[in-house]
């Protein structure tokens, strides 16, 4: 009777095991370079971008959907912010606040649009967000004519490159984003309903849950998280451009699934995703120290993904057989 619970735990423990294994291998493979302050700091600056985007992806995946437009949303929001920053309306601090507001405003609006398309028009999420992804990529290109907007004030650069109390600022943003997401998922009505809808939207409808409102809020949250990622991205690159971070899109799905988010919806938790992200980052930084091509890292990410899915399948199978 306790099986499903233990199974969830087991999946996380497989994940923790892999993380520890990967860390040990990387430490041994890079004696004297992996466990250094520089490397740690490097990892702490790199992880948040992918991390925040993965949170944006996971929240819709739990609802049983997918959001292919997260990167396009982030770029669009980043570009709007960058244009405001460059045009310098009023004092730098006014410009900064305006840009911040515009960035989150644009990303929320796109999130809302996705939500309406999925929940109200009832488009399949993958197609609705593929459409908005293409559309907003296009609008970004039209606005920028494909060029880069670069060169921001120190305040902006601080978001992605600064350090507070010895901790890289983007990492703080990521941690805060992760905690807020965790509270959203576990302690709010919308978060609660989200899991239920992800498992069986018919039953939630029959239980008086307003599926449409919950789904629209879900895509809204995903949009807002893309906007937060946009801030970190433009600050780290010190520029905005359409097409930045395109390769992250499918990686976020990979990271979320690796972190225990069920692609069919209904299950997933923030801690699992954070562990998966750390694992991926350790692999990536470790290989980088070994001067291995970043593409080999990508290949290994893919391989680990398959290995984890297969292992989980086998564990589950053995369990059901072992129970007899």
């Amino acid at each position: 009777m306790m099986r499903p619970l233990r199974l969830e735990k087991k999946e996380t423990s497989v994940l923790v095991g892999i993380m520890i294994l990967v860390i040990i291998i990387m430490v041994l493979a890079n004696p004297g370079t992996f466990l250094t302050y520089t490397n740690m700091k490097g990892m702490a600056y790199q992880l948040p971008e992918l991390g925040i985007l993965t949170l944006a992806m996971m929240v819709v995946m739990i609802s049983g959907g997918i959001n292919l437009s997260i990167i396009a949303t982030a770029n669009m929001a980043g570009i709007v912010a960058a244009i405001i920053l460059k045009s310098q309306p009023g004092s730098p601090s006014v410009a900064f606040l305006l840009a911040l507001g515009a960035c989150l405003g644009v990303s929320s609006a796109i999130g809302l649009l996705n939500g309406v398309l999925v929940a109200f028009v009832e488009m399949p999420p993958i197609l609705a967000t593929l459409g908005t992804m293409t559309l907003f990529n296009g609008i970004s290109i039209v606005i920028t004519k494909g060029y880069v907007i670069s060169g921001f004030s120190p305040a902006v650069l601080y978001i992605g490159n600064g350090m507070l109390l010895g901790i890289p600022f983007p990492l703080l943003i990521f941690l805060l984003a992760a905690i807020v997401m965790s509270i959203f998922l576990r302690k709010t009505r919308t978060g609660f309903s989200l899991f239920m809808i992800g498992s069986n939207a018919m039953a939630t409808k029959f239980s008086g849950i307003n599926n449409m409102a919950v789904l629209i809020r879900t895509y809204l949250v995903s949009g807002i998280y893309s906007g937060i990622a946009a801030l970190v991205m433009i600050s780290r690159f010190n520029s905005a451009k359409s097409g930045y971070g395109d390769s992250y899109l499918l990686i976020t799905i990979l990271a979320a699934v690796l972190g225990g988010v069920k692609s069919e919806g209904g299950f997933g938790n923030v801690s699992g995703v954070v562990i998966a992200l750390i694992t991926l980052q350790v692999l990536s930084s470790g290989f980088n120290l070994l001067r291995v091509s970043s593409f080999l890292t990508t290949a290994i990410w893919g391989f680990i993904m398959i290995a984890v899915m297969v292992t989980n399948f086998l564990i589950e199978n053995r369990k059901t057989r072992g129970a007899t």
Binding site: P4, F192, S193, F195, M196, S199, N200, M202, A203, T204, K205, F206, S207, G208, I209, G266, F267
Partner: peptide, 18 residues
């Protein structure tokens, strides 16, 4: 099975969702 319950989720979540 299809309309009354969210089968994959826990008993407690099913009871309190209303």
């Amino acid at each position: 099975l299809s309309d009354g319950l969210v089968l994959d989720q826990s008993i407690s979540k099913n009871i309190v969702m209303t």
